[in-house]
């Protein structure tokens, strides 16, 4: 079962849910692999302290123009929707950071003057934390192209029956790439208008991708029921609730696991796992 942990809003506790769920799955005797797909700000390793193999660069192909072969016909610049190539009277220039690696320019070039080079987007490392398989991707500072790196992170998983994808915040291309192919989306929210507003975006994204979803309410406060009311209206199950306490906030801030710090939270995660096992059986 591939479970994406997502949220819309940042900082609602996606990584907290992803790592505590991974630990709960592993302790139930199941084989699990956690992918930190938040390559802009990867944090899961802070909680799980994994042993990682070498950081392998991930690159995307970009064009290189051989100006001796180029006759400046301009077809490469014309096909490029991203203005990554400037065909000038005496020279053809490539702007690698505008390139989307669509391959149009080297396919269209009639002189075979364009070859491919690698542009490094970031690094991916694979390893394990105890029995939990672990992969993380790290985007290079200043790099703006994120989806291919997330794609590579997900592609490192080999055979683990349970895969947990810690997704980036937002609802645009990086979040889409993380969610794609998931069997279930666990959407983490908090009982605030910001949390709820962005949860609604995440629900729309999951439903747009045909991924069934359920909710985890983090930092729950007794008597504040705005998440319940939203979920009832949208016909969404609330699968777990993690209360807000200063003690839990302190544990999380130091990279500690909530399931080790608090028996009630551990029970909530065990119940969440049972729900997910039930969903898988029904699917």
């Amino acid at each position: 079962m591939r479970i994406a942990v997502a949220s819309g809003k940042g900082g609602t506790g996606k990584t907290t849910v992803a790592v505590n769920l991974a630990v709960t799955v592993a302790r139930s005797g199941r084989q699990v692999h956690l992918c930190d797909c938040d390559v802009e700000e990867p944090n899961a390793a802070i909680y799980l302290d994994p042993q990682l193999g070498p950081a392998v660069p991930v690159s995307t192909p970009i064009p290189v123009v051989d100006n001796d072969l180029c006759n400046h016909c301009g077809q490469c610049a014309a096909i490029c929707e991203f203005n990554a190539i400037a065909c000038l009277p005496r020279q053809t220039l490539v702007f690698p950071d505008l390139c989307h690696s669509c391959s149009g320019c080297w396919l269209v070039c009639p002189e075979q003057a364009i070859t491919q080079a690698d542009r490094v987007l970031g690094e991916v490392s694979v390893g394990s934390a105890g029995s939990i398989g672990f992969t993380q991707g790290v985007l290079r500072i200043g790099e703006t192209v994120v989806p291919p790196l997330i794609h590579t992170v997900k592609a490192t998983v080999r055979g683990a029956p349970w895969v947990i994808l810690d997704a980036p915040p937002g609802t645009t291309c990086p979040a889409v790439e993380a969610l794609r192919g998931a069997d279930f989306a666990l959407l983490v929210t908090e009982p605030t208008p910001f949390g709820l507003h962005d949860l609604d975006l995440a629900v729309k994204l999951a439903r747009g991708l045909d991924i069934p979803c359920g909710i985890v309410e983090n930092r729950a406060i007794p008597g504040r029921d705005i998440v319940d009311r939203y979920c009832a209206e949208m016909d969404l199950p609330v699968l777990a609730r993690i209360p807000f306490t200063r003690d839990l906030a302190a544990v999380g801030s130091e990279g500690g696991l909530l399931v080790d710090a608090d028996a009630d939270v551990a029970a909530a995660f065990t119940q969440l796992l049972d729900e997910l096992v039930g969903l898988e059986a029904r699917a």
Partner: peptide, 29 residues
């Protein structure tokens, strides 16, 4: 353009045969 408007404009200027550009600001690309 979604991106690279300056790159595209530079090609238009070059193709027009102009040798001089007068403008407010000019970015790196």
């Amino acid at each position: 353009a979604a991106q690279g408007a300056g790159v595209q404009a530079a090609q238009t200027i070059a193709a027009s045969g102009a040798e001089i550009l007068l403008t407010g600001h000019c970015g790196p690309k």
